[in-house]
């Protein structure tokens, strides 16, 4: 893709006129391309100027009072649940505290699965059906152990005084998502932490990506059931990287161009 193509995409972006594939191509490029970022800034200003071309109309005087009254009205919470709102508020305050909440439901689940395995083992049945159940339960336990391992790893990073945090902004595919990456610079201890990610559709997976001066790099894939908090290890040192994102891909993941973005954010330099 040539520079001119990217500049045209930047123009489309200024008018919110990119399809998901165009957006997926452009955003990682913007993270590493200063001239295109400058063009994006200019075109956003051009679009703001364009608004001035509308014939000027004096707003009705009553509008002022209704706006000021509306500022004092309590926000509507018809869409977002109170729990979700408080989680977002806590995230906005700069903490990772709410992330602990997502872990609690997993503990009894894990315990229940372990008890199930132990009970099945004690019965000593050797039937195929029970072996199948045992295998399923063991797989569940394994998966839960992985999740718990990721979560304790993430918590250790979050409690490390040198950790850094970058917020990933939700895209149209997951407008309510609250996501960030937390990492300890100079190590491969880096995690995606995300709440309110929609479940993955059959045949699709989420995939982690990061961008640096060399381009965009694919990371691990995962499926998601839409409940609780996602914790996924990046497994690379994110310090010095330009951006991180999550995309939707077909099962197996992508290795070249990323698919539609779910969350995206640049990584602060220090």
């Amino acid at each position: 893709m040539g520079d001119r193509d990217f500049v045209e995409l930047v123009a489309g972006r200024a008018l919110d006129d990119l399809d998901p594939h165009e957006q997926a191509r452009l955003e990682p490029h913007l993270a590493v391309c200063r001239p295109c970022r400058d063009t994006a800034w200019d075109l956003d200003e051009t679009v703001a100027d364009l608004a001035l071309a509308a014939p000027y109309r004096v707003p009705p005087p009553a509008l002022h009072d209704s706006v000021m009254k509306a500022l004092d009205a309590p926000p509507l919470t018809l869409v977002t649940s109170p729990a979700a709102t408080s989680k977002k508020a806590a995230l906005g305050a700069g903490g990772l505290r709410w992330r602990w909440e997502g872990i609690r439901p997993l503990l009894p689940l894990g315990l229940a699965a372990v008890i199930a395995v132990a009970a099945i083992g004690a019965l000593g049945y050797q039937t195929t059906q029970l072996r199948g159940q045992l295998n399923d339960a063991s797989a569940q336990v394994g998966s839960l152990q992985d999740q718990l391992g990721d979560q304790s790893g993430m918590l250790a990073v979050a409690m490390d005084p040198t950790h850094r945090l970058a917020v990933l902004k939700p895209e149209a595919l997951a407008p309510n998502a609250a996501a960030s990456v937390v990492f300890v610079p100079g190590t491969d201890r880096s995690y995606l932490v995300a709440d309110q990610l929609p479940s993955t559709a059959p045949g699709t997976v989420y995939q982690l990506w990061y961008a640096d001066a060399a381009g965009v790099h694919a990371g691990r894939t995962f499926t998601w059931n839409g409940h609780g908090t996602v914790v996924q290890p990046f497994g690379v040192d994110l310090a010095g990287k330009a951006a991180a994102m999550v995309t939707v891909e077909s099962t197996g993941g992508a290795t070249g161009s990323p698919g539609p973005q779910v969350v995206f954010g640049t990584i602060p330099t220090a």
């Binding site: 123009a11 008018l15 006129d17």
Partner: peptide
Amino acid sequence: KTRIRTGLLRLRDLLGDSVSE
């Protein structure tokens, strides 16, 4: 697409006060 995007880029040039410079 080309008309919209090229038009916007042309407008930017005509307004001629690119902040990025």
